[in-house]
């Protein structure tokens, strides 16, 4: 275990021998899988504990419901001045919107208070536990910004393909196993719940993880720094471009629909 943490630490400090040693292990893919799962579960731990606390709390009372709806009303009142650009009619509909939200919040509370065969705390605990264990499998986001098997394997496939096209000589297991080391600095996201500091630490973890990913690609495929950078960032740029083009198309479509609706 101590040796394992030693490898992770040395990899975080970008020491080449940690990467080559890791790459040459026979069980490198399994080791990579372990890193991803452990880090994803660790990062999800605070949210899981929060859900556990919620699960053992008593059901929401009428008074708590009233308080929640008052908070929603307050929030809507606060954004009212920001809606100045909207037509007066639309702003007047805000009262109706508030009423509808209140009705749905009440419905949500009523559903969460419905009884099941298992007593509520047990059911809610199981739900929290199942959700937490699912994190390594389902968590997704901007490439390499989250630690999950989806990002690791899904994004890794494109990087692997590009690295091969650029003359990379790495094996599947070697590349995937070594690239999993990008997850290590993401342990900083454990503090994501801390206001301000959490976001800063998350950003540091992301950038640090990116650097490790480039190094892992370089070492596992025996590529030059330039080629490794191309292999890692070209798929990312392609995704960003696709998203921008998609957003522009949707925007154009929506504005076209709005203008045609206004004309008619």
């Amino acid at each position: 275990m101590k040796a394992w943490f030693g490898i992770l630490w040395n990899a975080s400090l970008l020491r080449s021998e940690a990467f080559t040693g890791f790459r040459d292990r026979r069980d490198v893919f399994f080791q990579g899988f372990l890193i991803i799962v452990v880090v994803a579960l660790l990062v999800g731990m605070p949210a899981f504990l929060g859900n556990v606390v919620k699960a053992v709390q008593p059901r929401m009372s009428e008074a708590q419901l009233e308080e929640a709806t008052t908070q929603i009303e307050k929030g809507l009142k606060q954004i009212e001045p920001l809606l100045g650009f909207m037509p007066t009619e639309t702003r007047q509909q805000l009262t109706d919107v508030t009423r509808v939200i209140k009705v749905w919040v009440a419905a949500g509370v009523e559903i969460s208070n419905l009884s099941a065969v298992l007593p509520r705390p047990l059911g809610a605990l199981l739900q929290a536990f199942g959700g937490w264990l699912s994190l390594p499998f389902v968590e997704s986001g901007f490439p390499l910004s989250v630690v999950s098997l989806v990002t690791w394997l899904g994004y890794g496939l494109w990087v692997m393909l590009l690295a091969k096209l650029l003359g990379g000589r790495g094996t599947l297991a070697g590349f995937f196993g070594t690239s999993a080391l990008y997850a290590v600095p993401h342990v900083l996201s454990f503090f994501a719940w801390v206001p301000c500091l959490g976001s800063v630490l998350g950003l540091i973890g992301f950038v640090w993880g990116l650097v490790i990913y480039v190094k892992a690609t370089l070492v596992s495929h025996e590529l030059s720094v330039g080629r490794a950078l191309v292999a890692v960032f070209v798929p990312m740029l392609a995704i960003v471009l696709l998203v921008l083009v998609g957003a522009a198309l949707v925007g154009a479509l929506v504005s076209g629909m709005i203008s045609s609706a206004t004309q008619s």
Binding site: F129, G130, V150
Partner: peptide, 16 residues
């Protein structure tokens, strides 16, 4: 494990 979700990642793994 109740409420456990695997998602689509197994398709990628299977491809590999």
């Amino acid at each position: 494990i109740p409420f456990f979700v695997v998602g689509g990642v197994l398709g990628t793994w299977q491809l590999i």
